[in-house]
Every structure is written in structure tokens, then in C-alpha cells.
Design a protein around this nucleic acid. Structure first.
Ligand SMILES: [Mn+2]
Ligand SMILES: [Mn+2]
Ligand SMILES: [Mn+2]
Ligand SMILES: [Mn+2]
Lengths: 216, 216
DNA sequence: CCCATAAATTAGGTATACCTAATAAGTAAA
DNA sequence: TTTACTTATTAGGTATACCTAATTTATGGG
């Protein structure tokens, strides 16, 4: 017994994440995110459905109550791992995603508890995403993508919806990290860049990039 | 690509450990330690031999140069994980073996380095076993099992060659942990118990138990 | 040297999670 | 409504690492 659940966890984690963008998650989207072939995903999704972790509806897959509960546990372990890596071991925010993605499957409930406790029950990961508590509960802040702010509007960065190390390095180099205040100075028309002001400096940011940054 | 090496690592780790007791390691001994059937081990050992990690000689299996190098890397990660768990996360020494046995496969060279660094390059795990450095080098202290001491002999506990949590709890409850000084007060004949004195208290210890405790 | 037992391996099979190629189902433009 | 994509699934296959049962290979006592 004691089956290895890491693949299942990885699927649930991805589905959870993709659901935030678009509700029923398509096979192809999921395959792309997991870097697997669509048939592999199709097959695995069937197994997940059989286990009662997802429902396959018309236009895609969505987590069941139980699938969601399990996903949130994985996400908690992922984000706590990220915090351990940054806060205790001195990693930078662009180095922790992939590492955490492996660690999350090797962390027992006991380790999870100890990490949370010794870090003072952090509420977010280094990218600003909420860490669910043991019961899967977390505060969901109302945020807007920076790309939707009008000229002269200000916001405080809550989170950065991005995993690519290069992009995260870039954002950090501009000081675009959680808790920082940004002001949009102007918005170029026709989907052009935003001119933003952050801690005294002015930068031009592409829309695509700006849409990843969530502010309140 | 990027094959999953965790099973291989687990075999090498076991072989390395068992070699310390008895040199060529038998299939059955290895199977027992890994809690697998002898045929499974037989087959896997063939694969390891094929990869040049072990040599199959007359009476059993032994690590090649490369197998040994790889084993020591796993052991380094295992022991550093144990230290992280005890020193940073507050686990007790009897709780860390199984956890580390999972973590060791999820730890990248970067995490390994950071753990070592942030713990000040510890030389031993919580059980007193040496942590090899990045090149697989470690100081091998000359030790004797406590069971071989004569009456009135004293020694300092170096390490405890045991993984069973119950046993470790027991030993800790008697204060039999690394760096502690023990004196053998008397040795009962015919393989009987040892009467040992440890930080002012006197206890009777079975030979079997005493043989796990290495002193210098 | 023979035989009983112990140890190791071979034979044959399962489960899991991936793949490519082929097919089927949906969707949207002409 | 037919056609051309796109998306999803089925079919068939691979690799890995386990298992049990059967067989082979040591080995040590008589
Ligand atoms: Mn993950
Ligand atoms: Mn994060
Ligand atoms: Mn291990
Ligand atoms: Mn140890």
C-alpha cells in the first residue's frame, strides 16, 4: 500500500491553478501546463474522475470538492516550501518554484506543520499567493491586474502570477514585488505599454507582463 | 529525459549502509533492508551492475567507485535533511530518518548547498554519522561498539547505528546520545547485559542495544 | 559424495504513467 | 451545410519497478 500520489498531486495542482484563469480546464491547456502529451492527460484525467477528484463536464475538467481539498493541501505544501527556501535558506524568489514543485510531494503533514510554525504561519508565498491553512481556508484578496489600471491610478502589488525565473528576475530588478506601491503614469493606446512609477523610478511595461501583476 | 533516480538512490544508500557491517552485501540482506522481495532486488541489482554502479562478485554485491560516489551524495543529502529537521524545524532525533529518506530524493544540489551553509557545514547527522562533503570526503572516526568495552572502561558516544524510532526514543530517554560520556560499570557474563553509568544514572543495557552505540 | 536446506535467479505477470499514430468529435468559416 | 481546422480520445506500445511461483545454484552435515 502507501501509493505514490505525486503525479496525482501534480495534476490537481495544475488544474487548480488553471481554473483560476478559465473555469473548466481543457485537456490541451492542462497538457501544455504539465508538459505532457494530450493523450496522456486525457487518460490520467479519466483516472482522476474515477477516483472522484475531478468531474469531466462538456467543455473540460473541474475539481470536485475532494479534488479541490487535495489540491489546496499540495498548494499549501508548495507555498510553505517556497517560504522555507526564501526565508530560511536564502533563495531568491525566482529560484524557488521548481524546487518547491519537487519538495511539495516529499513533505509529510508533520514537516508541513513545523515549517508553518517555525515561519510564524506565513499568509503568502514569496510571490504573494495565499497559503491555505490546514483546512484549506485562505483570504482571497480582491485584486486587479496592473494592466487594467488607468493613468494616474495607484496600487499595491499583492501577487505576481508568474513562474518563469527570467521574468521574475526582471520584475525584481524593477522592484516590482509584493507590498510595493506602483503608480501607472500613462497607458499607451492600442495595447501598448504602461509607464509605471515604482519607488521613484519610471519604467515601460508590456501589457502582457503587467497583466501578471495583481494589485489592490 | 531527466530520469527519476530515487529508486536507484535508495538501493545505493542501502548497499552503502549494509557494506559497513559486512562487505559483499547479499541479495537477501538487501531485500530485507529495502523491504522488497529477493527477486525484485536481484533484478534491480542487475540493472545497477549494467549501469556500472555495483559489481556482482561471488558472494554478493559491492559498490563500484561511481556507485560509492553516488551513494555518498545521497547520504550527504539524507544527513543534511536530518540536521535541517532537527536543528531548524525542531524535530526529535527519532522522527527524522523516514522523513529524510523521502526528502533526500527531492533535494537539488542548490538546496543541499544552502542547507549545509545555513547550518554552518555540520560534520554529523543527529545520530552522529559523518556528513560527507561535496567530494564525498568525511572523517571516519575510529570507534568501538559500546558492547565491546570491558568493565570500568569509559567512552564518549560518537554515533548510534539505529533507525527504529522506538529504540532511539529509548536511548534518548537514558541520555545515550552522541557526545555523552558513558562508563561501563560491569559486564554480565554469557552475553548478558552491561551495567552502564551515564550522567550520574545507572542502567542495564542489552548487548544487542549496546552494539549499536559506537564510542571512542 | 549425497542430500536437505538456504539463497539466488528465471519465468511470467501486474500497475503506473508515459508516448506516437490514428481516429473521432466539435466548431466555426465559407 | 459542407469543409477545414482544432481538440479530444482510442489504440497500441514502451519503460520502470514491483510481485509470486518455479527453478536453479550453493552449501554444509552426515
Ligand atoms: Mn508541483
Ligand atoms: Mn509562489
Ligand atoms: Mn533513503
Ligand atoms: Mn542519521
Amino acid at each position: 500500500m502507501e501509493a505514490d500520489t505525486s503525479r496525482i498531486e501534480e495534476y490537481l495542482e495544475s488544474i487548480y491553478k488553471l481554473q483560476q484563469e478559465q473555469h473548466p480546464v481543457s485537456t490541451s491547456r492542462l497538457a501544455e501546463h504539465l508538459k505532457l502529451s494530450p493523450p496522456s492527460v486525457s487518460e490520467m484525467v479519466k483516472k482522476l474522475a474515477h477516483k472522484g477528484l475531478v468531474n469531466q463536464i462538456e467543455k473540460g475538467v473541474c475539481l470536485t470538492e475532494e479534488g479541490s481539498r487535495m489540491a489546496k493541501k499540495v498548494i499549501r505544501r508548495h507555498r510553505l516550501s517556497e517560504r522555507l527556501l526564501t526565508d530560511v535558506l536564502g533563495f531568491k524568489w525566482d529560484e524557488v518554484h521548481d524546487e518547491a514543485c519537487r519538495l511539495e510531494h516529499a513533505i509529510s503533514p508533520e514537516i508541513e506543520d513545523r515549517i508553518a510554525e517555525s515561519l510564524g504561519n506565513p499568509k503568502t508565498c514569496p510571490h504573494g499567493h495565499p497559503i491555505p491553512d490546514k483546512d484549506g481556508v485562505f483570504v482571497k484578496e480582491i485584486v486587479r491586474p496592473l494592466s487594467e489600471l488607468k493613468a494616474r491610478e495607484k496600487g499595491i502589488i499583492v501577487s505576481v502570477f508568474e513562474e518563469d525565473p527570467k521574468m521574475l528576475q526582471y520584475l525584481a530588478s524593477l522592484g516590482l514585488i509584493p507590498d510595493v506601491c506602483v503608480e501607472v503614469e500613462e497607458v499607451a493606446p492600442f495595447g501598448g505599454p504602461l509607464i509605471v512609477c515604482v519607488s521613484g523610478s519610471r519604467y515601460a511595461l508590456g501589457r502582457e507582463v503587467a497583466s501578471k501583476i495583481k494589485v489592490k
